[in-house]
Design a protein around this nucleic acid. Structure first.
Lengths: 176, 176
DNA sequence: CAGATTTGTATGCTATGCTTACGAAATCGG
DNA sequence: CCGATTTCGTAAGCATAGCATACAAATCTG
């Protein structure tokens, strides 16, 4: 399904004859020094860098798992949140998921366009609009939860229960 | 600089009089049950969810730190990598940073447009193009490293040295 | 040599996220 | 109670990022 260059495991370039045309040693090194794992140099010690890679890997697997459902991480999070808190307002969702108001709206729009939720007027605050899942939305969420379980299993397979808890704990310190 | 709704701390809605117009209890609950921290319900146990939030928080702080330099995480990573491995090829960069070839090119293009690097023909493999930092690019990287230190400090401030090492270790298991 | 693979490239689509701006509604301070 | 401030939803525009697909040239493999 995905060409994804990334899958390609690093094949080691076989030793090159030393007297080609005498390309700069640097160039030789640059392409030859790929052992089992890519040498990342000093960025390897930057936490943010690893977060980004881990996020990318997680995102990729998520997308794959959800390709049939056609839902993204954000969409599922929003559906989930609305299900947990019926009649929640956009602003609340944004706050909880740490998204901009505009970004939140974009997602809600897409969700609404697919009839997974409905906007309704709030009786408490007429600035607000209460968001509620439709039957379809509820079904989609149930389906999504199944996929999430599978996805979460993929992530957790590399950790003990203790490690998983610890990881969440550490990550929470960053975003909370 | 940033309006960012996210900054807004959750102010608790003062208790509502019980006999307004009798809005559904659900709606009341949805907006009222925001204590000190947003209640996220069950998604709170999903590792991927926390990775995403942590990534978002990190990304935001990074962007802020680099707003003057006008560089993104990806750009810096690429510059850094080229500096560590002069004459590296695009494909290698993509593999190491786990990016698509097309995505990699987009970034290289932007970097080249800003004269931070130059593409040159490879003497070893004429399909490849060796990438090298310009003087400007090198300066930018030096400047960037200063910002990264600051950024990394922001992240690390919430961890002990041991925890930081552990966190990287755990994250590595996900993306490696 | 012929076929498969790799590399760089171009094009186009989608999702995300931010900014700025606006109007309507609510809240706050006097 | 009224004016100032804030919140909420919305809209339009811009940049980044990521993916798929397709091509041509170069290289590798059998």
């Amino acid at each position: 399904m995905a060409e994804r260059d990334l899958e390609a495991t690093e094949r080691q370039r076989s030793g090159h004859s030393a007297n080609v045309d005498c390309a700069s040693d640097a160039e030789t090194r640059a392409s030859a020094m790929t052992g089992d794992e890519a040498d990342l140099g000093a960025i390897d010690d930057i936490i943010g860098f690893h977060i980004r890679l881990a996020h990318g890997a997680t995102y990729r697997h998520f997308t794959e798992t959800f390709s049939e459902l056609g839902l993204t991480q954000k969409m599922v999070s929003v559906l989930w949140l609305i299900d947990d808190h019926p009649h929640i307002a956009q602003a609340d969702i944004g706050r909880r998921l740490q998204m901009d108001r505009a970004t939140t709206m974009a997602i809600i729009n897409r969700l609404e366009a697919r009839s997974l939720l409905v906007r309704g007027a709030s009786t408490l605050d007429r600035r607000r609009q209460t968001l509620t899942l439709t039957a379809t939305g509820h079904e989609a969420l149930i389906e999504a939860r199944r996929c999430i379980d599978e996805h979460e299993q993929w992530v957790r397979s590399r950790f003990t229960k203790r490690e998983a808890t610890l990881l969440i704990e550490l990550l929470r310190r960053i975003h909370e």
